[in-house]
Write a protein that binds this DNA or RNA. Sequence first.
DNA 1: ACAAAAGTGTTTCTCCTACACCCATGT
DNA 2: ACATGGGTGTAGGAGAAACACTTTTGT
Lengths: 235, 235
Amino acid sequence: MPHQLDAPTRLAVSTVIFTLRPGAAGRAVLWTPLVRRTREPQLGLWALPGGWLPVNEELEVAAARTLRATTGLAPKYLEQLYTFGEVNRSPDARVVSVVYWALVQSDEAARAAAGPNVRWVPADTLPGLAFDHNRIVEYALWRLRTKVEYTEIAHAFLGGTFTLAELREVYEAVLQRSLDPANFRRTMIASGRLRETGEFQAGAAHRPPKLYRYDPSATRTADDREPFQSERPAS
Amino acid sequence: MPHQLDAPTRLAVSTVIFTLRPGAAGRAVLWTPLVRRTREPQLGLWALPGGWLPVNEELEVAAARTLRATTGLAPKYLEQLYTFGEVNRSPDARVVSVVYWALVQSDEAARAAAGPNVRWVPADTLPGLAFDHNRIVEYALWRLRTKVEYTEIAHAFLGGTFTLAELREVYEAVLQRSLDPANFRRTMIASGRLRETGEFQAGAAHRPPKLYRYDPSATRTADDREPFQSERPAS
DNA sequence: ACAAAAGTGTTTCTCCTACACCCATGT
DNA sequence: ACATGGGTGTAGGAGAAACACTTTTGT
C-alpha cells in the first residue's frame, strides 16, 4: 500500500528548458537549468523546474511561468512533452506531472540569473536527479533531436536575425554531427521559411554573410502543421 | 470565476479507439466507439470512453481498462496522445484529461458488443460530442495518419497473420489514397519487420498470396525507437 | 598577397514512382 | 481459356551527399 489513506492524486507541471552554450571543440552544447528541492521528499536533490497546477491556470501558462521563475526568461518555443504518472514515481503521494519542453534564446540565457537553488548543467551529462527526472530529460532530448530534423524550431535558439552559419551551428550542436555548409544552405533556402533582411554581418576576416530572419508565415499548407505546438513571440 | 470555491482539479483518463470496417467504395473506413453520458454535465451527449483516474492505477492501465469496458477488447496498440487541460473545457470543475489512443483488431471489433450507451461511428464524420472531444478525436486521427507513414503500427488492425494485400488495404484506408501494390510490397519487405509464415491463403480465384507475420524484434537499432509507445500482445 | 569563410556549380548516388510484364490459381 | 490478383523487373526522375571552385572580406 504505497499511498496514505485517501490522499487524492496531485497534478504538477514541470518544464525541461534547453539553451546552447559554447563548448569545447568549437561545437556548442545543450544546457538545462535545474532547481534544488527545498522540501521533502528528495530534499536537496536537483530537479526540473515546476510546481503544482493552480486550479485556474492553463497548463501551458503554468509551464511558462515556472520557466520565467527559474530563468527570468520567456520561452521562444514551448510544447507539451508527455504526462508522467507512474503510481510510485514519488514516494509519498500519487503525483501526475504534465511535462513541457522549451527552447530559450541562447544569448539571453547566457545572462540568466542562477543562484544557490538554480543551477545550469549540460543536458547530456546530468547528475542524479530527483524522482524520474533523468528519464524525462532524456525523452525531451530525444524529442528535440528528432524534431529538429523535420521542423524549423532550431531558430528558437537564436535572436531575430542570424546568419546561415549560426543556424548551422545550432543544428550541429543539437544533432551532434557536422553538416556540409553548401548543402545546408540549399536545404534551408528551399524550406521557404527564411527571409533575407538585406543586412550583412560585418567585422569578420572574410566575406560578410547575409543576415536572415525566420518567417513562419511561409509556403507550407495547413495540412502538415502540427496541432498543439506553440510558437511564442519574443516577449 | 468559472469554478466553485476551492474544488480541486480532477484528473481523468480517456481513450480514442480506432478500428477498420468495410466501406462503400471497396475501401475500409475508420470507426470509433463512443459512450453516452449518463450524468451532468452534458448528460445524453456522446463522449469518449474514459473516467476518473483511481489513485493506485497506472495511466496506461486505466486507458486499457476503459477500452475493455466499452468494447470488451484488448488494445493491440496503445499510446499516450496528449493531455488536455484547458481551464474551461468542462463547465463545472477543472478537469485535466490524459488521453490515450488505441488500435484494436478489426475482425474482433466487428464482433464487439454495442448497446444503448455504446455506439460505433465513422471517425471522420462524428456527431457533436461532449466537451472538447471532437477536437481530441481529430488530433488522434492526425497522429494515426502521420504515424502510419513512419512506423509499423498498421498491422495492429490485423490478426496474427496477414497477406500484403490486407496490409496494404489498412494503409489505404488510413491514408485515404491508393498505393501501388508492387512498390508497397518492396517497401514493406525492405522494412525487415515482416516474416513469411510459409503458409498461403487459398480459396481465391487467383494465385494464392503468402501469409506474413509481424516481427517486432527485427533489424532496427534501439536509437530510433520511440521511448514511450507501447506495443501490446493480443491477450 | 593570403587566410578564411561565404556562396555557387556539378557530379554521383540513392530512393521513390510508374508501369510493363510474368505467375498461379478458381471458374 | 480467361479473369484476377500475386509477384518481379526496370527505366526515369527528384532529391541528398560529396566536393571542386569562385567571391569577398580583414589583416
